[in-house]
């Protein structure tokens, strides 16, 4: 069983999404990619749990990968 929470967990999701986009406003493609990479590393460190990180990586690679999708939070 994957421990990755794939159920809504972000307070005021529209505000979060707008903040995420604002991060990239006026940036070049290379800058944006670097910002995203740094963001992933920061969030990964915050999560810490290797099982969760592996499950998230599998889900990102193949959305709907069964082992992740079948899990209830």
């Amino acid at each position: 069983m994957s421990p990755l929470n794939t159920y809504p967990n972000i307070d005021r999701p529209d505000d979060f999404y707008a903040e995420l986009l604002a991060l990239h406003e006026g940036r070049s493609k290379a800058e944006s990619e670097l910002i995203n990479s740094r963001l992933i590393l920061l969030l990964a460190n915050h999560i810490g749990n290797r099982q969760v990180l592996s499950a998230a990586m599998r889900a990102a690679l193949d959305p709907g990968a069964k082992e992740v999708a079948d899990t209830k939070a």
Binding site: P8, A59, P63
Partner: peptide, 18 residues
């Protein structure tokens, strides 16, 4: 990001509010 949200929304509930 928009396309990533749509990629994830079918399988994962969390992406739907986005």
């Amino acid at each position: 990001f928009r396309d990533a949200v749509l990629d994830l929304a079918e399988a994962y509930d969390f992406a739907r509010p986005l």
